[in-house]
Design a protein around this nucleic acid. Structure first.
Lengths: 230, 230
DNA sequence: ACCTGAACACCGTTCAAGT
DNA sequence: ACCTGAACACCGTTCAAGT
């Protein structure tokens, strides 16, 4: 009779949503590599095969994670600001949604056009690019690049020490910085000069706004160039 | 006595270089997921454990792949062109080196600063950014973003049909386009309008120059803004 | 409808041993 | 120095079966 609660998880009943939530939590804690059918099942006190009733296979589970991420995007209220300000706001909203889950952010790339919440983001982005004066094809190209760039911006580089506390990450950064500083200043003068910043880039405290600004600025310049045919 | 040549591979003798070459070939043919210690060993007619003499573990093998990619970058000859033209040329050279191997291009991100050929690319990039007037920290930020953006530009999205011939890829694209075109034009007018281009983006024929131009243009505008303090 | 049990064909990696 | 053999603790997934 001491059967329920095989694990810590409360055994409500399995569902797509519960599985996805568990998967994201697991990824946050131990990285995408820890997200395994078997570990997920264990976390829910259930047999691995139980998950296969809710998802066709693991890829669909990952799709589900991406869908959840997109669904968390808080669209900025529509206003009459110029298109580039609106675009910046939209990209920042996307960053805000992905940023808390860097281990799974990369999944967003493959699934944008395969789920409703992703399509909503795509639709808004394309709409703003059309307002900027780009045609349908150009907007698609730029939009695709924008999404992948933003995703990359907030993605943890794989191979980072997971499950590691903040202290361990600090250590890794220090080691990296030291090894960069130890390079020959004759052969790599600029790497050595930027050692601190380069080592710091390997972390969640990276400056995402810089990247966004760069992207939007580039698009603005292109749009103006197109219009004035300069 | 019919012992040699367990497989097609000529059994010269194992080496780091040979293993890396085999790994890249395997990834090109069947995707990164097929790159497995065991399959690699098999391709070389050798026991899986044989690879562990040449590489500490699989991560080091992946590092070796990235190093090979960077070593194939053909640096444009130093000239007196303006820094932005030189930067564009350098990024295009990086694209040219990564483009033939989209399945493993993503490995370049984690390994830039961990191998000599990667450091060479980083050094040149930082040097040009310093010429543009950015300080050491800003150059590092921008440079890091640039690399990941370029890598993203040429990376196959995971989940693409591998081992699939060109025909199968064509099919996949057609299916994608059809499903996008079938969306409600009221809810997703811009996605529907861009359906063709969006479906085509999922392929190796993507326009990389557009992305590079966008990035460089963005940097130029930022640099000018900085200098003229506008 | 929702889940279990047993089985299959895979992984990376360690450790001791061979030559 | 370079490689093998056996073993361990994992994977995703199928298929038949239970309730």
């Amino acid at each position: 009779m001491v059967k329920k609660r095989d694990t810590a998880e409360a055994r409500e009943r399995l569902s797509r949503d519960a599985i996805v939530t568990g998967a994201i939590a697991l990824a946050d804690a131990e990285g995408l590599g820890a997200v395994t059918i078997r570990r997920l099942a264990q976390a829910h006190g259930v047999t691995p095969m139980a998950l296969y009733w809710h998802f066709k296979d693991k890829d669909q589970l990952l799709d589900g994670i991406a869908e959840r991420l997109f669904s968390e995007v808080q669209f900025p209220p529509a206003d009459s600001a110029p298109w580039d300000d609106q675009l910046r706001a939209l990209l920042l909203a996307l960053v805000a949604a992905l940023r808390p889950h860097p281990a799974v952010a990369g999944l967003a790339r493959a699934s944008v056009l395969s789920c409703e919440p992703g399509l909503a983001v795509a639709e808004h982005t394309l709409s703003l690019l059309r307002q900027a004066g780009f045609d349908a094809d150009k907007s698609a190209e730029i939009g695709g690049f924008l999404l992948t760039a933003v995703v990359t911006l907030v993605s943890d580089e794989p191979g980072l020490a997971y499950g590691a506390d903040a202290e361990a990450r600090e250590d890794a950064m220090r080691v990296k910085r030291a090894s960069l500083s130890a390079l020959s200043p004759r052969r790599h003068p600029n790497v050595v000069a930027s050692a601190d910043a380069l080592a710091a880039c390997t972390g969640p405290e990276a400056n995402h706004e810089l990247g966004i600004d760069m992207l939007v600025t580039g698009i603005v310049c292109m749009a103006e160039g197109r219009v004035t045919s300069r």
